[in-house]
């Protein structure tokens, strides 16, 4: 039900945005394309008020959808928010504009450990936005074992109570990690093993979903599900005390979503102003507070520690250093990704 409300509000906001666009004929319109429910949208109004630049805000649901839309051409997005492996693919395909940091003085607030990551070693193209992990969201009333390992997703005890993600990388990654392999494996034998493991899991799985997992777990429709740390934080802020989030001790995927400017952008300066605005300590704090995701912004981390010290105890907000060391960032798989796609199709159709 909540989801529906959110959707209607988004639609209403979009209509309002379109109407306001037609009302205003002067000035630049910045096309911002972001994940659904991934930005405090009141900040957009604030940006418009501050700069007079109109923002046309739209949403996508997965990295793959974003890449597909960019590749299909005909789009003119100015700021997009892909994750690590999608960024490295976009860099490889020469689809991004290098960022001029003179226009982004607030970049100094980004914690050094989020700079120069593998997918963009010199930070030529990307500015970190949020980061997090993939883990297991669970209902404490329905699960009495500790949720600290991928094994629980294969536990017969929870037959019909497990939700997996209809996402090629996440679901196959969980199986690979359970087997002790890399989530970026391109080894045919390792993937064959992961496929067998996922096929064996099918009878235990209630369903394969996308963003719906959060609401299904919160509603008690299933006991546990694979999802992003942000979903757990979202429920935490909403006061769902019976919902927990475990990061498997074998390690998981750590992701970094960044702001980048596609090559097709016609408003690079304005896009950089937008990125700079999003890094402003107050704005970034408001955004992180509203969305619940962990920010890479030092000022935000500082203020969160003062105002909400308890969230640093939560694995969803601040995962264990040890587990992080065992975790991996997704890499672009190149042509090998068709293999991953086939495996997921086979698992779903079984």
């Amino acid at each position: 039900m909540k989801k529906i409300l959110v959707r209607t509000t988004v639609i209403a906001l979009l209509i309002a945005a379109i109407m306001s666009l037609t009302g205003c004929s002067s000035g630049v319109v910045l096309n911002v394309f972001n994940w659904g429910e991934y930005m405090d949208e009141t900040l957009i109004d604030e940006f418009e008020k501050q700069t007079g630049i109109r923002v046309n805000y739209k949403n996508y649901a997965t990295n793959e959808e974003l890449l597909a839309k960019l590749e299909a051409g005909g789009s003119s997005y100015d700021v997009i928010f892909p994750s690590d492996y999608a960024i490295s693919e976009l860099i490889k395909k020469d689809m991004l504009l290098p960022i001029n940091y003179d226009n982004i003085p607030n970049y100094k607030y980004i914690d050094d450990r989020f700079k120069g990551l593998d997918f963009d070693p010199e930070n030529k193209y990307s500015v970190p936005y949020f980061w997090g992990t993939i883990g297991i969201l669970y209902n404490k009333d329905m699960v009495d074992d500790p949720v600290d390992s991928w094994d629980i997703l294969w536990n017969e005890k929870y037959k019909g109570q497990i939700l997996m993600k209809k996402d090629v990388r996440d679901t196959i990654g969980a199986a690979l990690k359970k087997l002790g392999y890399s989530m970026n494996s391109t080894n045919d034998n390792e993937l064959a093993e992961a496929k067998e493991l996922l096929l064996a899991q099918v009878p235990l799985v209630n369903g394969y979903y996308g963003d719906e997992i959060r609401d299904l777990i919160a509603n008690g429709d299933a006991a546990m599900g694979l999802t992003y740390s942000g979903d757990a934080m979202d429920l935490y802020w909403e006061g769902f005390e019976n919902i927990g989030y475990g990061v498997p001790k074998e390690g998981t995927n750590v992701w970094y979503d960044c702001m980048v400017i596609p090559k097709t952008s016609k408003h690079k300066d304005e896009a950089e102003r937008f990125i700079n605005f999003m890094l402003d300590p107050d704005i970034a704090f408001k955004n992180s507070e509203a969305m619940g995701y962990s920010s890479p912004n030092l000022k935000v981390i500082e203020r969160m520690r003062q105002e909400y010290p308890e969230v640093f105890e939560l694995p969803a907000y601040w995962p264990d250093e040890e587990i992080l060391e065992k975790s991996e960032v997704y890499l672009d798989l190149g042509d090998y990704k068709s293999k991953y796609n086939d495996i997921l199709t086979e698992v779903l159709a079984r």
């Binding site: 997965t62 793959e64 959808e65 890449l67 597909a68 590749e71 209809k166 090629v168 099918v202 799985v205 209630n206 369903g207 394969y208 979903y209 990704k337 068709s338 796609n341 199709t345 779903l348 159709a349």
Partner: peptide, 21 residues
């Protein structure tokens, strides 16, 4: 259906939106 009975429409969507084939 919880994605457990993918239909041909889902497959087509999958190919254009996710697999990019």
């Amino acid at each position: 259906g919880g994605g457990k009975t993918p239909l041909i429409g889902d497959m087509i969507e999958q190919q254009f939106l996710f697999a990019r084939n």
